[in-house]
Nucleic acid binder design. Structure first.
Lengths: 204, 204
DNA sequence: GTCTATATTTAGATAGAC
DNA sequence: GTCTATCTAAATATAGAC
């Protein structure tokens, strides 16, 4: 029997609250979602939500803390791929896969809005984005080494830029169209080494 | 002497309120900016703000109504350029030039967040974004005609994608770094016709 | 037209019973 | 742990004096 609190059960309840809150934050936004709304969605009272979280912002952060392990798993899966450029494109497509889910769009926008106001949220996001950036940076460096990626690019800066372009896929508000093809084309061509004839002319 | 209200003066006061409000909405967001804040910034009482606008959302819309003439001017300036591809890249750079202004960043995020909740705001934004999309679509079509842009692209879809990428560049604006070079490379290569040797291999 | 004063509503957070 | 009840604070919008 557990000596003090059942830490597993606490984690479960927190998770359930975060899941319900994510849906509401995505559609209504942070300010317009009330703690009472969250409590109702998860089937408890508002008082109980404050038992699991010190305040409303902490619930918001919990939503994004859930992304860290997923990012780690994805990055790890591609880290040792034989063909780094192919791996980059697959990873990018996977990162953008949720883009057509309107909830993902709403959450991204709300995150951008709130991140300036909560230093602890900055830290949460920094960790997840950092994992992805590390992974992309490594793959870009390996692509440069094997000649499939433009070696003139700074791997870290290119990785950061690619993350920006992935965000663009999320902003593509039209749910009717899949942004992944345009995204793949964009990233593939961005990374592409300078074709020899153009190199001679001093462009791209 | 004016028979009824001085319509010019009303427009001036509305403008002054919109300018002050823009700054506040950009930094604090829509919900956290109070009408009292706006009134104080412009030097009047909250009651006066409600004399010029029916409600707070109307003040927010007024902020974005100011963008329409600017977009028209920019697009018109490039519409008849001799080299459409060059014009696209210049126009894109200009659109992204504001990206390093934190106020522009804040306003864009807030716009994305609020646009879902206000049908009248949708209309305001649709007009401005529509002008830019028309302009880009025309330039892309002309580029396809003169061989500087991949003719396999649908001009309208390509224009929409470019707008999204510009927005993303805005959003992740690290104020320390200029996104325009990466943006130019990205757009130029995205639009580029398929090099002949790659075409033979059936790759994009 | 601009103000002051206020009605109305609502939300975050807490206290304390069970 | 979960609830109900409530405190406190703030914000939109209006009323009505000047």
């Amino acid at each position: 029997m557990a000596r003090t609190v059942d830490v597993g059960r606490v984690a479960e309840r927190r998770e359930a609250i975060a899941v319900a809150a994510a849906r509401l934050f995505a559609t209504a936004g942070f300010e317009r979602t009330t703690v009472a709304d969250i409590a109702r969605a998860v089937g408890v009272s508002a008082g109980s939500v404050f038992y699991y979280f010190p305040d409303k912002r902490a619930v918001f952060r919990a939503v994004f803390e859930r992304d860290l392990p997923l990012a780690q798993e994805r990055v790890a899966r591609y880290a040792d791929a034989d063909q780094p450029l192919t791996a980059i494109l697959e990873l990018v497509a996977e990162l953008a896969a949720d883009a057509r889910d309107p909830a993902a769009y709403g959450l991204l926008v709300e995150l951008l809005r709130q991140v300036d106001r909560d230093p602890e949220l900055v830290e949460v996001v920094r960790r997840t984005a950092g994992i992805v950036q590390e992974g992309l940076t490594g793959l870009i460096a390996r692509g440069a080494a094997d000649g499939t990626v433009d070696a003139a690019l700074d791997p870290r800066e290119a990785a950061a830029w690619i993350q920006v372009v992935v965000d663009a896929a999320y902003l593509n508000a039209d749910p009717a169209r899949d942004p992944v093809p345009a995204l793949r084309r964009t990233v593939a061509r961005y990374l592409q080494p300078v074709p020899r004839d153009e190199e001679a002319r001093g462009e791209p």
